[in-house]
Design a protein around this nucleic acid. Structure first.
Lengths: 161, 161
DNA sequence: CAAGAAAATGAATAATTATACATTTTTCTA
DNA sequence: TAGAAAAATGTATAATTATTCATTTTCTTG
């Protein structure tokens, strides 16, 4: 994997799976994946990818911007959803630990009129229907999402998600 | 205005109203507001405020992170509430990202008998009525909150928002 | 395929930011 | 209020990142 596109995809993977605190560090991480690149190129990649630099209590960290992160992860939304149930007034989606916020965000942005909104905890998303009559329809929507899993993602051995 | 707090508030204002592309530039902008500060202090302020550095096509830019942007205007509950909807069993309030908890707290402490309680996620608050018959009344209560916006914000001449 | 254009990249370096250390200011406590 | 402790800040500088310029690679087009 030596192309620019391949490299940038790998960068996205690494940013999501590890704490990246400098471009030099990332260059070394890429080296482990047999991708040689200089800091200068990473600086350019970051600009192209819209990578965000956060500086906070724990020093500096580079992360994907939310849009990128969203689109990147969206292919795996089916992986993140474990089950769907409902009662008379709402639909309850169970997710992987810590992924409820992400799943809720994804569901919100489907912009389905049947869905008034969502509330997410750590591993549970409440989906509120605009009317109780649409609960079954929302169940179908979510179940369809669950089919949305990756065919085969080339990750060069690094597990993501 | 010379205190650290005052300076940081001014920094938030400036980040929201202007394109800030370097700490040195911001130092000069602050100078115009009679706030003298060195780049080193701004670097520390950015870490404390959680300021984000974006690098993209148009070069570099510093912006407030969404949470900070929210808490800055948190005194104005009306600003934080984006919309209100309902179905047959509850009322759903959509807020600025990250502000749902704050809005829910506010609504809870209205101590309205029509409101049994609230559940908040990141940008959504569920308001549970004591009885379905009161949903319309709760809608009115929330809509009234939305009018609760600031009369006049003293900004030392710099327009924000 | 060859010539030229465009894109990508590295090396070197300019520009910018983060931080160690010293000093000053503020806050706390007796 | 004196003295100690903590917080804030500036200076100087180390660390990091962005960019210029030169070179290489890739893509067109005849």
């Amino acid at each position: 994997m030596a192309s620019k596109l391949g490299r940038q995809n790998k960068i996205k993977e690494l940013l999501q799976s590890l704490e990246v605190t400098s471009q030099e560090q990332l260059a070394k991480l890429l080296m482990d994946a047999d991708i040689e690149v200089t800091q200068a190129t990473l600086s350019r990649d970051f600009a192209e990818l819209g990578v965000i630099r956060l500086s906070g209590e724990n020093g500096i960290r580079y992360v994907l911007n939310p849009d990128e992160a969203g689109s990147y992860i969206s292919r795996f939304i089916g992986f993140e959803i474990l089950s769907v149930t409902n009662n008379e007034s709402m639909v309850l989606v169970r997710t992987l630990a810590g992924r409820a916020q992400g799943v809720a965000y994804y569901i919100d942005h489907l912009n389905k009129e049947e869905i008034l909104g969502t509330v997410a905890g750590d591993d549970t998303v409440l989906v509120i229907p605009n009317t109780h009559n649409n609960i079954d329809r929302i169940m179908s929507i979510i179940k369809e999402l669950m089919l949305n899993v990756p065919k085969q993602k080339q990750t060069n051995g690094v597990q993501i998600g």
